[in-house]
Amino acid sequence: MAAANPPGLSLQRLIYALALLAMLWLGWTLSQPAPSPPLRGSDGSDGSDGSLHMDGYRITPLQPFSIEARVLGREDYHFDAGAAVSPTDLALGWGPMADPQVLASISIRQSNRWYHWQVESFPIPRREIEIHSANMHMIPANAAVADALSDIRAGQRIRLSGQLVRVDGEDGFTWSSSLSREDTGNGACELIWIEQLSRLD
Score class of each variant (00 low, 15 high):
P37L: 11
I106F: 06
D46Y: 08
G73M: 00
R58I: 09
Q101A: 14
M54Q: 10
S48Y: 08
G93Y: 02
M54Y: 14
P37N: 01
G82S: 13
Q110D: 07
P38N: 10
L90I: 04
D49G: 14
Q32Y: 05
L103Y: 11
S121G: 02
S105F: 08
A34L: 14
Q63E: 13
G50E: 11
T60I: 05
G44S: 08
L62F: 04
P125A: 10
R113H: 12
P37I: 01
G82D: 07
Y57Q: 06
G50L: 09
A83P: 01
R109Q: 14
A84E: 13
P87C: 07
H78N: 10
S48P: 00
Q63D: 04
V119N: 04
T29C: 02
T60F: 01
W114Q: 14
L24C: 11
Y115E: 02
E120C: 00
S31M: 11
P38C: 07
V71K: 06
G56E: 05
Q110G: 09
D49H: 06
V119F: 02
M54N: 01
W28R: 12
E120L: 10
S48M: 05
G50H: 09
P125D: 08
L72A: 06
L39G: 05
A83T: 02
E75A: 15
S45I: 04
R127N: 09
P100G: 08
L39M: 14
L103V: 13
S42E: 15
S31H: 13
S66C: 00
D89S: 07
D55E: 15
S31L: 12
P64T: 05
D89F: 10
S51K: 05
A22S: 15
F79N: 07
R109T: 15
V119T: 15
G73P: 01
I59H: 04
S121A: 15
P61C: 08
I106N: 03
A98M: 01
Q32M: 15
P61R: 03
H53T: 15
